[in-house]
Amino acid sequence: MFQYIVRRLLIAIPVLFGVTVFSFFIVNLAPGNPVEMFVNPDTTQADIELKKEALGLNDPIYVQYVRWLGNLVQGDFGYSFSTYEPVLNMVSSRIGPTLLLMGTALFVAYLIAIPIGVLSATKQYSWLDYLSTSVSFLGISIPHFFLGLGFIYIFAVQMHSLPTGGMNTLGSEGGFSDTFKHLIMPAMVLAAGIAGRMVRYVRSSMLDILGQDYLRTARSKGLREFFVINKHGFRNALIPIITVIGIDVSVLIGGAVVTEQIFQWPGLGQLTIQSIGSRDYPTLMAINFLAAIAVLSSNLLADIFYSVADPRIKYD
């Protein structure tokens, strides 16, 4: 197992390298450049050239890449083109809010979706099953921007019960309950989609299990149906569920771009949008790099959890 993990970590290095090459060139292919953001009627061509030279943008792309990579290896993510802050500070100050939003959304979604999925499978074709599959379909189908705007209209504009955006009330001291109020809507918007998908996966995964012989064995022991389903059944349905959780986590660490933007949530997703707008290459690269690490590590974690959930899966 230990060897397997080490091997996977070593494989991750070339993969990460590939991701940085790819994303560096893609980012630079985008039309426009950071300097255009500083242009105003008084700016002369000479000023622009000077600026470009200073940022190193006149060098060939591969030179820029090698320079960026050289700094990265030393732990230096560079400075933002638009704010001149160290990229590391900018990104790390955004990780906390994103993790909070993501963690809440995932927790709420799974808390609701897993029991409903199990129930939906055990009572297949009942009104409860039809209700939960249709509601979950709705959750999957509604775009985040639409649900987000709908929530804002209902809860903020009409009912005045929740703030429209941000993480803390401006000018206030913040605090737990204030942040919590700001958290509810974006977390629910994210949770709707995640829960919708999860209900479907849990349901179909459980349906595969419910006909298994070992459940009949468990019943023939005199076990309560509750334990037959939730101990013997659910434990076997975990593998596909772990896969979905792994994907959810890796996607959300990259930031829920649309939702964070709608609710002005100061997380990585919002930073991504801002950096794209200002062609802030160093910041974009750092976010990409972080997202790649998140995908790779949550894949590895999912693989490790497979073998915890199912003893037949062994790595060596």
Binding site: Y214, T217, H232
Partner: peptide, 25 residues
């Protein structure tokens, strides 16, 4: 009452030993 009888006073073995035991326990 049936639960207290199953596995206790009447027990059962099945055709498929390969699948009758739960693989994860």
């Amino acid at each position: 009452e049936m639960r207290s009888i199953r596995g206790n006073e009447i027990s059962m073995i099945f055709q498929e030993p390969m699948t009758s035991l739960n693989p994860v326990f």
